[in-house]
Design a protein around this nucleic acid. Structure first.
Lengths: 338, 338
DNA sequence: CTGAAAGCGCTTACAG
DNA sequence: CTGAAAGCGCTTACAG
């Protein structure tokens, strides 16, 4: 095995032409079962694997799909949401024979290189985890007609791109309704970064929920989904001096540190103050008290996005965005568990 | 821009041959500055990007490096260590023009496909995050002479592969020494999964630390690095009925839930029981009380591993494994902070 | 169902 | 320093 065997070798070993060998290998029909068998055996004997560069050169397909993390900050990698997102893509790609290329935006305007790369048929399609406003970036993909699916709605709807999203607005609303249902009347929230659609939508839904119940928001603090801003947010809420008996934090990471901060200040959760998070993360389940949270199926979303992309690549017409529905996981932190 | 421009187009626009255009584009010297300028302008005007499949076909280089997560369980994606690991690879690849291919082992014996893929020059090299015993897998890479660097020492040393690791044994020892230095004498540990070298090494170092101080281990519980087993481990330790005044958990995720469990049982941290984690995760810093932890520079490690791999690919001889040194980050959970 | 032949877009000796 | 030419390993009309 000094040299990797080529199609030529397989054809010779099987006693057929390269064309027939190629057809047999690709399962492209029109091959007698005798020839098929011969080729199969030769492939096996030789341990043949097609050279994907050569194939790619003629088919114009790369056999690769990119997951673009449209976020220059590498801290995103410590976000459990992100890990689940990757898992979803990986999983959806398993039956496909396509490889996953992970690309990130870089801080120093290195976007050009990424744009060139993606725009130049180096991948068959791309899934973008779109966190912020980055229309220039998406514009390139659209202009070059690169099959693209977004996870999370784009910041500007006119982008006209296919996306998969969670109904974050409903999620926020559910959080409000749940807390109100638990008897809370003095409500506050710690939001995500408000330049992100997901954070905006959760806040909007939350406020709609309050409004529907005729309740006024006592206070709000803007965070960035990280543990640190959960703690800071809690401090900010406490510093208002207002009485607060229910808090919705737009991520579990924030909810968890906020919860600790409240307890540190002598408030009992859920007796004095009820807390609801967002994401259904592993930490939420194992915290003390266990954290009530809104489901955010990152994995299912990116899985769906990837399947959509695959359909797009095949040329199937898919027009409708997919919007998944969140639900409340009631646990002790909101007094919601049995 | 109906069609992507080819080298042919560039050559024609610049009024030179394809060979010269190719040399100019690759910066392969031996090009007059006049020709260079002409080609540069043509490339720019046409928005030319080389077709990597064509290039790859002749150079035998793919321009891609694979990060293999040798772990069939997708829960690994929720481990912050893993996110940092990805960030390290991404970062090291930025100046390289190489793409990152993320590959995972799958549960249902799909390893063959991955092995075939990696063994067949579809990537220039691979970084393996090696968590468990999986020698068959590594064997294929070695047999096929695929440039490979492991993150974490291999389970069997005879694998003879290059690796980057943390001195986990020292890490465990530091944890022991730190707790003993804080006056603890009744010590217990919650370990990682003991089929993993990292967990084995931490435990070994921990016990060496105890031994050196003439202290006997009061109890031990085997976990798997996840929050759930931290809580369970704490319960197990408490259930022994032994008095315990210091606990080393081999991951922050476990330490954090263990800490909560202790407090839930009326023990004050650090007054009654001191806790040390491992990983230097974001949650550790923001927990209450802040968690003392052992540094585990996942990002630096995978960055180093990637740079090693790059050198290997270039044919530079690199023989020595790299072993990074951990340190103690003393915080309040062990009474170690000011 | 099968094979001979062209061609995908590049790089690289080889002459000059 | 430059160009003509061969060739990387495949797929795909086109005939038969």
């Amino acid at each position: 095995m000094v040299q990797n065997p080529t199609l030529e070798d397989v054809a010779r070993a099987a006693g057929v032409s390269r064309a027939t060998a190629s057809r047999a290998i690709r399962g492209a029909g029109k091959v007698s079962s005798a020839a098929q068998e011969l080729v199969d055996r030769a492939v096996k004997d030789l341990g043949y694997v097609p050279n994907s560069a050569a194939r790619s050169l003629v088919t114009r397909e790369t056999g690769a799909v990119a997951l673009v993390v449209a976020e220059p900050d590498e801290r995103i990698f410590s976000d459990p949401f992100f890990g689940a997102a990757i898992a979803g893509v990986v999983e959806a790609l398993v039956p496909t024979d396509k490889q996953l290329i992970l690309a990130m935006r870089t801080r120093n305007g290195g976007d050009e290189r990424l744009e060139r790369y993606l725009g130049n048929q180096q991948v068959d399609g791309v899934v973008v985890i779109s966190h912020h406003d980055n229309d220039q970036f998406l514009a390139v993909l659209r202009e070059r007609a690169v099959p693209t699916v977004l996870v999370g709605r784009p910041a500007r709807p006119d982008a006209g791109m296919l996306y998969v999203d969670l109904d974050n607005r409903l999620g926020g609303k559910l959080a409000a309704e749940h807390l109100i249902g638990q008897g809370c009347t003095r409500l506050a929230t710690i939001t995500g970064p408000l330049d992100m659609p997901a954070a905006q939508d959760r806040l909007q839904g939350w406020r709609e929920g309050l409004e529907a119940a005729g309740i006024e928001e006592v206070a709000m603090s803007e965070g960035d989904f990280t543990p640190r801003t959960g703690r800071l947010g809690a401090q900010e809420l406490l510093a208002t001096g207002e009485r607060i008996d229910g808090v919705f934090a737009a991520s579990d990471m924030m909810a968890l540190t906020a919860l600790q901060e409240f307890e540190e200040h002598g408030l009992r959760v859920p007796d004095d103050i009820r807390v609801v998070g967002f994401d259904d993360s592993a930490m939420a389940e194992d915290s003390h008290p266990p954290l009530t949270t809104i489901t955010n199926p990152a994995r299912a979303m990116t899985g769906e996005a990837t399947r959509l992309l695959l359909a797009l690549i095949k040329g199937e017409e898919v027009e409708e965005p997919i919007v998944l529905t969140p639900s409340v996981l009631a646990r002790e932190s909101s007094g919601g568990a049995s």
